[in-house]
């Protein structure tokens, strides 16, 4: 029981960033952002190449995160400038990001076992307590998430953060307040895709390699996690933006733990995609009937 819990926690905390990215875009900016698949692998690709070529860890991570952000900004730009549908804008950028990632990596796969890794610093903790639990990794990831959580929350409470939220939920009203809606959308997507890229970086370090297919399936995964989190947490009790953040993190962890337990019990990973899709469908159907009234950004 400990093993799947451990696997699920680590993966859940790593992917929480991309779930947050999708959740913020979806719920606060009213933008179903498909870009996250592309920005996650782009971030991983940039990170792998830089770290392999001897860049320092902070440089590699920063560049990777910014690369992801640029992808998100591009999606926003395509949408506001060319009036292209939100979905299509995201899809186009994912395609661009895929080709770009391949070019950057020079191969479809880069091994990172011998490269520096932030999890190395907590190796000692990982081997203490219980051998099976990566205690150090879990604490490190949780700490990172906590810092991110606080930063995002305080950002969203500033005048600009509030403007961002209004631009997303009610663009017409935002315009009448003098808020530059297109700029806010582009900037908002920049930030969220920075987060998605960060997930890609952490994932690469955790699993020891970067692969061009890393981003595939992330959208369904993030949607499933997001839906689970929103369903399990009480929506009424907390301000909406805090609810969205918490649901994303919580959902990501719960989802990965559930998956790990299922795999542990013998469910083939290949059947997982079907199970995930069905799960999302069930939860979404249930949610609509339970909460049919106004929910910000409901699709």
């Amino acid at each position: 029981m400990l093993v799947p819990l451990d696997i699920g926690l680590v993966l859940g905390l790593i992917l929480a960033w991309v779930v947050i990215a999708l959740a913020l875009a979806f719920r606060l900016l009213d933008f179903p952002d498909l870009t996250v698949e592309g920005s996650l692998s782009l971030g991983a690709a940039v990170f792998a190449v830089l770290i392999k070529n001897g860049s320092s860890m902070p440089t590699a991570i920063t560049c990777a995160v910014l690369a992801g952000g640029v992808a998100g900004a591009l999606t926003g730009f395509i949408h506001v400038r060319f009036r292209l549908n939100k979905f299509l804008s995201g899809i186009i950028v994912v395609a661009i990001a895929y080709s770009l990632s391949l070019r950057i990596m020079g191969a479809s796969n880069i091994g990172l076992l011998q490269s520096p890794n932030i999890f190395d610093s907590v190796e000692s903790l990982n081997n203490s307590v219980l051998k099976q639990i990566h205690l150090g990794s879990i604490l490190l990831l949780a700490a990172l998430l906590l810092i991110g959580f606080i930063l995002i929350l305080s950002g969203l409470s500033t005048r600009y953060g509030l403007g961002l939220r209004v631009a997303g939920s009610n663009p017409d009203y935002a315009r009448s307040l003098g808020i530059n809606v297109p700029l806010n959308i582009v900037f908002g997507l920049f930030i969220t895709n920075c987060l998605a890229a960060f997930s890609g970086v952490l994932l690469s370090m955790n699993q020891g390699f970067t692969d061009i297919s890393m981003g595939q399936g992330i959208l369904i995964l993030a949607l499933a996690a997001m839906t689970i989190g929103e369903r399990l947490l009480p929506e009424k009790a907390i301000p909406f933006h805090i609810f969205v953040l918490c649901a994303a993190i919580f959902g990501s962890v719960v989802y990965q733990v559930l998956v790990a337990c299922a795999v542990h019990e013998g469910l083939a990973a290949t059947d997982l995609k079907l199970v995930t899709a069905v799960l999302v469908l069930l939860v979404v159907a249930f949610k609509i009937s339970r909460n049919g009234d106004f929910v910000e950004g409901d699709q």
Partner: peptide, 12 residues
């Protein structure tokens, strides 16, 4: 089913 599964399944 994909390269991303290798790590968690191997751990399990």
């Amino acid at each position: 089913s994909s390269t991303g599964d290798v790590y968690p399944v191997a751990q399990d």
